[in-house]
Simulated scan of single mutants.
Amino acid sequence: FLARFIIQIILNSMHRYQPRFHVVYVDPRKDSEKYAEENFKTFVFEETRFTAVTAYQNHRITQLKIASNPFAKGFRDCDPEDW
């Protein structure tokens, strides 16, 4: 069993992403292209969706991100001018 991992990630800020995990079997047979559709499987885990962010330069973006983040309850109770 030989496993090889290749990971490339390029993200754009404020874009939503859904990671996918692709498993590809490298078929050693000479006619492997006939079986190409059988030699891979893609897995998607819905709980891994995310929005890429950078440091916020605009307080409106900060407010938007906090408003849409279910884990940012503590920030919602304070005055936006404090950010």
Rank of each mutant, 00 (worst) to 15 (best):
F1M: 11
F1L: 08
A3I: 12
A3H: 09
A3C: 07
A3K: 10
F5P: 01
F5S: 02
F5Y: 04
F5M: 08
F5I: 07
I6K: 09
I6S: 06
I6W: 09
I7S: 02
Q8C: 08
I10V: 11
L11P: 01
N12C: 06
N12L: 08
S13N: 13
M14H: 11
M14R: 06
H15L: 06
R16T: 15
R16D: 15
P19K: 04
R20H: 11
R20I: 10
V23E: 13
V23Q: 14
V24A: 11
V24F: 12
Y25C: 10
K30D: 15
S32A: 15
E33V: 09
K34A: 09
Y35V: 01
A36E: 15
E37H: 12
E38Y: 07
E38M: 06
F40Q: 14
K41H: 14
K41N: 11
T42A: 13
T42H: 09
F43H: 09
F45P: 00
E47A: 01
E47C: 00
T48H: 05
R49E: 02
T51M: 09
V53K: 04
T54Y: 03
T54Q: 10
A55L: 09
N58V: 08
H59C: 07
R60W: 07
I61W: 03
I61S: 03
T62P: 08
T62R: 15
Q63C: 05
Q63K: 10
K65S: 01
K65F: 05
K65L: 03
I66Q: 00
I66V: 13
A67Q: 08
A67W: 03
S68Q: 04
S68W: 04
N69K: 03
P70G: 01
F71V: 00
F71G: 00
F71I: 03
A72I: 01
A72R: 08
K73D: 02
G74M: 02
G74N: 07
F75Q: 05
F75M: 07
C78M: 13
C78E: 15
C78K: 07
D79R: 09
P80G: 11
P80S: 10
P80D: 12
E81F: 02
E81P: 00
D82A: 06
W83F: 14
W83C: 08
W83S: 11
